[in-house]
Structure formats: structure tokens, C-alpha cells
Amino acid sequence: MVTGAFVEVPPAAQAAGGAADAPPAGARSRAPWRALWRRAVRLAPPYLFLAPALVLLVVWTYRPLAQTFYLSFFSWNLVPDVPMVPVGTANYERLLTTPDLADSVGLTFVVIVAMLPFTLVLPVVVALLTRRVRGRAAAAYRALIFAPMLVAPVAGAAVWQWLLDPSAGIVNTLLGTGTNWLNSVDTSLWAIIAITGWHVAGFAVLVVSAGLTGINPDYAAAAQVDGASRGQITRWVTLPLLSPTLAFLLLMTVLLSAQWTFPLIDTLTQGGPVGSTTTVYYLLWEYGFRSHDAGLAAAAGVLFFAGFMLVASLLARISDRLSRYDD
């Protein structure tokens, strides 16, 4: 995970800054100042190298995050000349009393759960299958499965709109049906989920394959010597050793599923029909840029951020526990 152990690095700056031959402090009357200056010069380089990234980070991530929090207590329509009206917690009250939010959270939950077969089950099956075939073929299959990941989301949306076309699309022709997959309440969300799954499964396959090659084969060999069958080895040796990778994929699925669906929803269904594909992110987008209700959108943003933190820290804790297997 991202929060890897902090690695101690020798203080390179001290030599590089030419501080080794600095005079002892207080050698002359101006020496304290000069020593301070030298100290600043010696300490400056890492901060200077870090500055551009840090400025961008503050300006484009942390400043707006704080401002969103502030904005969530105002009523404003995004027009610069129109003053912001303080409304206290009215935005939050509106959010929590209208059914929109609860509905979209429910839909998002469905999306996340329905994505798990694509990001966890399928990759494990594929990774186990690729161990049966020889090296070059395995790489070729992986390349094929990975290819959709490179398709731009909008291009993917376009081709799936054509594949799922109710009158002439190949899916309906093959099935002998005339279903309007993307425009009926019963199927629209599932169509979006399937397209998203097609898009991201290749990435998950690669991650699991990488995790699998990282497992020491001695464990399986030892289990075999003890008389374990292939299925038993997979179940009791390989999968537990793979669990940190799977936990990471679970975390990604939970945090990013709704993000992955956004371009598809925006281009294919616009949240409809009758709100059947309005996930939390699409709801936020609508509040902000369709209804121009900045305060409400900000309040929703704050709530989602809080939810995010909660889920992420929970999953990070779980994955910490899981990664202790390989000792």
C-alpha cells in the first residue's frame, strides 16, 4: 500500500550544501546571523525541489477541499457576481431529508458489489488458469484481456451503445431480443456495470498475476509433499498468500467503482431513466453543474469525503491484518 515504511536516508544535503567547513557559531560579531543564514541555505534545497509539487497540491487539492467545507454552509449559484448567502446547516438538512442521496448511495453500493466479480473473482480465475498454459500464450491472453483498459471511456461508451442498440445492435440480434438495455429502468444500471467491468477487469487481472508471481513456490511444493491436492493448495496456500493483493483490489473497487462509471453514465444514460443510474458522483455533478446549487453540491462533497475516509481507513486496517500471512 501507499503508506509504506519510512526509509531513513543519509543526510545528503549537509555535504552538498558545503556546510562541512562552516565556521563555528560566534566566531565573529555577525557570526550568529551568518550561521543562521548558512543553516537556512543548507536546509533549503529539499524544500525548493519540493515546492512546485507542493504548491500545486495545496492550490488544487487542499485549498478547494477546505473551501468546499466552507461553501457547504452557504447558498450560491456559482456565478462570481452573485453574493453567497450563509444558510447554516440547511444544505445538510436538505440533503439528508430528500430521498435523492439515500437512493444514489444505494445504487452506488449495488455498483460496488456488482463490480467485485470483475475485479476480484474473474482476475483470480484468470490468474489460476494462466498458470496452466505456457509462458508466451499466457502473456498473449493477458494482453488481450488488458486491451479494453486502453480504450478511452467515451469511445467504449460509443461502441457499447452500438453493440446494445435496440434495433440493429449485435447483442440483441444474437439474443433475438429487442431490449433497450441502456434506456429501461430494469437493465440500465446492469448495462453500465457490465461495460465498466469490461473496462477495468484487465487491470485487475494484471495486478493479481503480479501478486501471484510474487508468491514463493516453496509453500505449494511443501504442501504437495505433505499430500495436499491441487484444489487444497489453491484454497489453503495460494489464496491466503494472495490476500494482501486482493485486499488492495477490494479497496480500489470500493473507492473507485463510482468514479469508473461516471463517464459512461454521463455519455450513455445521464443518470436515467428515472434516476436508475444516478450514483453519488453523478448526483454531485448534477447538483453542481445542472442545478447550479453549489452549496448543496459542496455539502454532498463533504459527506462523501467523510464516508471515503471512513471506508478507506477501515479497509486499510483489514488489509494490514491480512498482510501478516506471509511471515
Binding site: 531513513e8 545528503a12 453542481g288 469525503f305
Partner: peptide
Amino acid sequence: AWRFPLQRPLYLLFVGTWLVPFQATMLPN
């Protein structure tokens, strides 16, 4: 290449962006 004061918090500032969804910052941006 360096060890400097505030290194750890600054590093966490970078890691922390993973938790900030784009939608929570889009309006001010």
C-alpha cells in the same frame, strides 16, 4: 536524497490526495 524537518507530514500530504475524491474539490477549482 534528503532528510529534512516535516518530511513525514509532507509525504503524507501527497499520499492523502488518494482520499480526496475529485468531486469534493471540483466546485472551488
